[in-house]
């Protein structure tokens, strides 16, 4: 006479849920019990019956119906290029929250390189001619925290495209001065995530940006190799209200 344990053993064996010891117990049970063999045959019969139904193809057009009906956060070239996942919590969540509504990414060439015949506002998503830098390697990073302000700056590279990514959260405007002299990197493009960036200027081998609030912006660069000095660094200076509050550097590693 089979008990509940026996019945569960047979069913679990049929469903492939037994380990080696369980399978051995089942073998013994099946050898000894006609009732167990009948139960196993019943389960196989039910399975055979259900197997008569072939898997159905989803109706034509269902895929589009589903996909078209779903809204996602507006895609950001830069959110995919540069992951937020490794940022400190507060900054990460602040940026993630703002990203959903602030993903109007505008791209500019600035300073002397600007071509007046080109509408750079229409260049969204077109800045990295060699393709996106998604998953780019972080070569070096610099971070700071001060009263009412925090920022992280990362130097990234993928496939010969270099990017300097700035993420900041600051109540008061911060001034970033970036010195590329002797690096062998040529300024290529500048991209921002929203409209709060107050000013950007490019002069010689120095870029200055002034920003406040929760911000993310990216400077894209090409490597020229010309004038590159071994051990050279990208110099950084962060100022607030005309006073330097932090200096640092990033090492490109050549």
């Amino acid at each position: 006479m089979m008990n509940q344990e026996h019945r569960e053993l047979v069913q679990a064996g049929f469903d492939g849920e037994l380990d080696a010891a369980g399978r051995a117990r089942l073998e013994t049970l099946l050898a000894e019990s006609e009732e167990a063999r009948v139960l196993m045959a019943d389960l196989e019969a039910i399975d055979a019956f259900l197997d008569r139904a072939p898997p159905l193809e989803a109706p034509a057009g269902l895929h589009s119906r589903i996909v078209d009906g779903i809204s996602l956060p507006q895609p950001s070239r830069f959110l995919s290029l540069f992951s937020l996942s490794d940022l400190p919590g507060v900054l990460r969540y602040g940026l993630a929250a703002s990203a959903a509504v602030l993903l109007t990414v505008a791209v500019y060439r600035v300073g002397n390189e600007m071509d007046p015949s080109v509408d750079y506002d229409q260049m969204v998503g077109t800045i990295a001619s060699g393709g996106p830098v998604a998953g780019g390697e972080v070569i070096d990073r610099f971070g700071f925290e001060a009263e009412g302000a925090s920022a992280e700056i990362k130097l990234m590279e993928r496939g010969g495209v270099y990017a300097l990514e700035f993420e900041l959260d600051s109540e008061a405007p911060l001034q970033f001065d970036v010195d590329f002299s002797g690096i062998g990197l040529e300024f290529d493009a500048f991209a921002r995530q929203d409209e709060d960036l107050e000013a950007v200027s490019w002069s010689g081998e120095t870029l200055s940006a002034r920003a406040r609030g929760q911000q993310k912006f990216v400077i894209l660069m090409r490597r020229t190799g010309e004038g590159a000095e071994a051990g050279s660094r990208i110099g950084l200076e962060i100022s607030r209200e005309g006073s330097s509050i932090e200096t640092g550097w990033l090492e490109p590693g050549w």
Partner: peptide, 10 residues
């Protein structure tokens, strides 16, 4: 998908 990638959604 959380980053808005519709290809990933598809």
């Amino acid at each position: 998908c959380r980053k808005g990638d519709r290809q990933a959604l598809a």
